[in-house]
């Protein structure tokens, strides 16, 4: 049952991704709705999967690469739905679902056994730390998708290529606004995640900050987004520049998440 829900969710996200790609590359109207429906079905099964794992394990299923990646994808979907609903821009799905699908796909490659929680992670601080970090990162993930949409639309307007996808993408101002909203949502969450992480590290390891690779990369990510906000407010860096930096920021998140866990030796490795 657990594996069935996961696989079905993966398949539905895949279908949504394909429909999204068709919407981006082919002339077609009204595919956004289909993406939303497929994503919603996938989301229900995905949620079910997380609940089943929670009941089986007795703790929030956010440890281990398999669960962590899956939970990250889940957070992205939640925030995606909120923003797609709030701004009534369905085509966002075509740019977000590929991210969700790829995360789920990589999640499926990691070992999926439910193992007992190591004592060091048995703390409320840990749960809060992780959930804040994931929600914050999910907001940044969507900001990067919006950034890609902005860059495309900007490109079309500058080059005066005004048919096809240009017609289906929303206006620049709203894209910039959503990007800004997402970063102002993600940034305080990331900040809090780092603070709660430090507090928990103090109680678990006896030190707030140990220059662990994950900590360093989180700091780099934090600095990137702090810079986006700072430059926007002081220098009016908006639009294209903000879009580019938000994409770089998300790449940094991906490296923090996968690169550090898989390549570098870190206390934060989920296993």
């Amino acid at each position: 049952m657990e594996i069935v829900t996961f696989k079905l969710a993966l398949i539905l996200y895949f279908a949504a991704t394909i429909v999204g790609l068709i919407e981006i590359f082919k002339e077609s109207k009204g595919l956004s709705r289909l993406i939303l429906i497929l994503a919603a079905c996938g989301f229900v099964l995905h949620t079910l999967n997380i609940i089943i794992r929670y009941l089986a394990a007795g703790y929030l299923p956010i440890t281990g690469m398999h669960q962590a990646t899956s939970f990250f994808a889940w957070c992205i979907i939640v925030i995606f739905f909120i923003f797609a609903y709030r701004y009534k821009i369905g085509i966002i799905g075509a740019f977000i679902l590929p991210i969700v699908f790829l995360l789920m796909l990589s999640s499926s490659t990691f070992p999926r056994e439910i193992i007992p929680l190591p004592p060091v992670l048995q703390s409320y601080w840990f749960d809060i730390h992780i959930v804040l970090a994931f929600i914050g990162n999910a907001a940044f993930a969507i900001a990067s998708g919006i950034g890609v949409m902005y860059l495309l639309q900007e490109h079309y307007l500058k080059r005066k290529r005004l048919s096809g996808l240009f017609q289906r993408l929303p206006n620049l101002q709203i894209l910039d606004e959503i990007n800004y909203r997402l970063i102002t949502l993600g940034f305080p969450l990331l900040t809090l995640a780092i603070i709660t992480g430090a507090l928990w590290a103090e109680s678990a390891w006896g030190a707030y900050w140990r220059w662990d690779p994950k900590e360093v990369w989180s700091l780099i990510t934090w600095i990137i987004y702090a810079l986006v906000l700072h430059l926007r407010i002081t220098k009016g860096w908006r639009g294209k520049k903000a879009a580019i930096i938000s994409i770089i920021g998300f790449l940094s998140i991906l490296f923090t998440f996968f690169g550090v866990n898989l390549l570098l030796n870190s206390l934060h490795s989920f296993n």
């Binding site: 109207k29 639309q153 307007l157 005004l162 240009f166 017609q167 206006n171 620049l172 101002q173 709203i174 606004e177």
Partner: peptide, 23 residues
């Protein structure tokens, strides 16, 4: 169909473009 969707005069085209830049 999208038969009546896009501007077919220069003055309307300008308005349409403005709407793709501004909210």
């Amino acid at each position: 169909t999208r038969i009546a969707e896009n501007a077919v005069s220069i003055s309307f085209a300008a308005v349409e473009l403005a709407k793709k830049i501004f909210k």
